[in-house]
Design a protein around this nucleic acid. Structure first.
Lengths: 341, 341
DNA sequence: CTGTTAGCGCCTTCAC
DNA sequence: GTGAAGGCGCTAACAG
């Protein structure tokens, strides 16, 4: 077997032209069955395989799409990528992965790299500190489909797939209220202004309070760093209040876990003294002794829909590319941490 | 800005030949400084970007490498991919991701797809039920570097990066023995024969017992399915024994967690009645009320080394590609679950 | 139904 | 120092 057989090799062997071989291989209508069979047979013998690079250069379509996420080693983004990959590979696409580590410069680098690798589209979860949006214009100028997922920025002509953070905040809070909680606190994360995910959760929280005639109390909203330490600090702050809360809706499972650890140290029982609900449905939430209720963001779905939106964009002629903004409903997973006895 | 500027566009504008433009862009020695500057300037103006596909077709190097894993939405594989990506992107490579879902047919499909996408190399964590190895020969015949990581198969000429499972089993067991445990049970996983990862851990366990003059007791080795349910079953089996264990070394954190839950139901205290150590250092292990000791497999390192081995293979002339088998030392992370009071 | 020609965008001899 | 020509592998248009 030669290292690499081309259509010319098989053409030579059969004493026909490369064009005929190409047609036969692609099952073109105007080709005799005889030559088709012959070509297929010798192709097999020579171990021929199509060189997608050549095809890509010719057609201008690489059949690769770029996916940019903050980190890949997180359950959330890993699941999204899984969804994207599964949806796209069956259409003959390959997924090229990049990470930004929440750095805008890396985001720009990655986009440029993907662009000149001639990807057929870019799916991007926007870095939280994105300030310069001109890079996105460059993508659009090249007529490369661009789709935001999970985290978006408002840019005309860019479709997106996100979850309904407002609803997530609402159902979590409503659930706690229905459990009989009168003073629901809320932990929100610092540092995500530009993608305002946490803003939506907060608004949902407020709306739920309003709908159930509970006055909003600013003191019960604690903005902290999104990690275990932040959660501990939040608890310390909350417990100093005159009016202490009887429930917490945290916009992140990690902050919540830190908080729960702190509550335990202080002998405060979850869920009876303090009912809690987190956000993201991180894998660890269901493994704890007191499993944590959490709002699931359906990452697999996000990935699948993002892929589908991309495929739709492809069908459209370049001029009438309509913007599509999918907002998926999150789902509240109720576990022990929010069920008062 | 035109949709896509090529070297011809800038050549035309400057009334010079495309060849000169190419040379100027590549900082070729035999080009006047004047034209270089001129070319660079107009390239900038026209928004020129190199088309990597054309370069790839010409050079035969796509600067893409394929990575195949069972699943991407697992902390372990996610971390490995992160390591690979970070190491390779700075050398100008892109990572293309595929999943096998532990199906051999998908593994073959993915390899073929990557091959005719002309990747410059394939990094693969072998599917556990791999039987037909002829696909790997095909890769080698094409002189495409192939590197196994985490899970390997013995194939001449294929390098690999794995962890020392024997050592992992050894240090975990030794640690339990040093804690004063006399009857260390071992949970091993069913269904991974072809990649014999679990075999190594078992051997390490045996060797540790031997080194500390503890007789090996076959009854204490429980093979179960690698999930929570399997762990529960294992505990049931163990507790029926005349000689009950006082410690467990589990070859998987998930089996162990199931076991711990079962122990708790039965009022058996961890670590005092039963000291336990898991394997993989899954994220949840450190979040539990009784954090679990576990053998960390350094996935990030695996990824980085796999990438490095790939880069080394590249330097070698095709003929003298030497096989390199890196075996990384795992690390025991000691937490409360194995520390007797 | 098949062969010829041309070109995707780039780089690399080979002349000049 | 620069231009012209050819080719990487494939396909589409145009003849025949």
């Amino acid at each position: 077997m030669k290292e690499k057989a081309t259509i010319y090799d098989i053409a030579k062997r059969l004493n026909i032209s490369a064009a005929t071989v190409s047609r036969a291989l692609n099952d073109h209508s105007k080709t005799s069955e005889k030559t088709k069979k012959l070509v297929l047979k010798t192709a097999e013998e020579l171990g021929y395989e199509q060189n997608r690079l050549a095809l890509a250069l010719k057609s201008g379509k690489s059949k690769n799409i770029g996916v940019i996420v903050p980190r890949i080693d997180s359950n959330f983004f890993g699941s999204i990528i899984r969804g994207i990959e599964e949806e796209l590979q069956q259409k003959g696409y390959h997924v090229m992965i990049c990470q930004t580590h929440e750095k805008e410069e890396k985001q720009i680098e990655n986009i440029n790299a993907l662009l000149n690798a001639q990807v057929d589209g870019i799916l991007l979860s926007v870095t939280k500190n994105t300030e310069d949006t001109s890079i996105f214009d460059r993508v659009l100028q090249k007529h490369t489909p661009l789709i935001f997922f999970d985290r978006k920025i408002e840019i005309k002509g860019v479709s997106s797939v996100t979850i309904d953070d407002f609803k997530g905040g609402y159902i979590a809070t409503e659930h706690l209220i229905k459990q009989g909680c009168k003073h629901v606190a809320h932990l929100t994360a610092l540092g995500y202004q530009s993608v305002n995910i946490y803003q939506g959760r907060l608004e949902g929280y407020k709306q739920a309070l309003k709908d159930y005639d509970i006055p909003f109390n600013e003191d019960l909203v604690i903005p902290v760093k999104n990690d275990l330490e932040g959660g501990k600090l939040a608890i310390e702050t909350l417990l100093k209040l005159k009016q202490q809360p009887d429930a917490i809706f945290s916009s992140s499972d990690f902050m919540l876990l830190g908080g729960i650890q702190e509550l335990k140290l202080r002998g405060i029982n979850v869920p009876n003294d303090m009912a809690v609900v987190g956000f993201s449905n991180e894998p660890f939430t269901k493994f704890l002794e007191t499993p944590i209720s959490s709002v699931d963001q359906c990452p697999l779905e996000i990935g699948k829909y993002a892929a589908q939106v991309f495929l739709e964009q492809l069908d459209d002629p370049k001029t009438i590319k309509i913007e599509k903004n999918l907002i998926l409903p999150p789902e509240l997973i109720i576990r022990q941490s929010s069920l008062k006895n």
